[in-house]
Simulated assay, not measured.
Amino acid sequence: MQLVLNKVLMLGSQTQTIIGRPILPEAAVHAVVEEHALDAKVIIFKKKRRKNYRRTKGHRQELTKLRITDIQGIEKPENTMPLPPPTKEKEKAEKKVAMEA
């Protein structure tokens, strides 16, 4: 099932950020429903001491997993590569520089 989410509050990329007041009228997010599931069980327990009053209820919230397929309303640079994830060596070097400063 495909969805179009029209009420977008903010869009952003590596080069620009657009904030709506309150929404962005030209923005849209296209998504596909991946899965319907139930969240972990939440137990509601009520007790009044010395009154022999105990009530237990449970609840599982419904969840929907979405996969974002397209974002409209922000220009996409064509020749940019995503940044590689930081390596452990690079993180250690940055920590040392921060400690020395």
Rank of each mutant, 00 (worst) to 15 (best):
Y53F: 11
K92D: 01
I19F: 01
D39E: 10
K76S: 08
I43V: 15
R67I: 15
V32Y: 06
K46G: 05
Q14S: 11
E89M: 09
M81V: 13
G12S: 03
E78M: 11
G20C: 02
L3Y: 07
K7Y: 01
T80S: 04
P85I: 07
M99S: 12
A37C: 14
T17C: 03
N79W: 02
T17I: 10
A101L: 10
K57N: 12
R54D: 00
V97A: 13
P25S: 06
A101H: 00
G12F: 10
E94F: 08
E35A: 14
K7M: 04
V32Q: 12
V42I: 11
P25Y: 01
T69R: 07
L38C: 02
K46L: 11
Q72R: 10
Q16E: 13
H30N: 15
R54H: 10
R67L: 14
P25R: 03
M10S: 01
A37W: 11
R50K: 11
T15A: 02
E91Q: 13
H59C: 00
H30L: 14
M1V: 11
E91H: 08
G58I: 07
P25W: 00
V97H: 09
K47L: 10
L9V: 15
E34Q: 14
G12P: 03
L5D: 09
I23S: 10
L66G: 06
M10C: 08
A40F: 13
G20D: 08
I23H: 07
N6W: 11
M1I: 07
K57L: 06
P84Y: 00
Q16Y: 02
K7A: 00
L24A: 05
Q14A: 14
A37S: 13
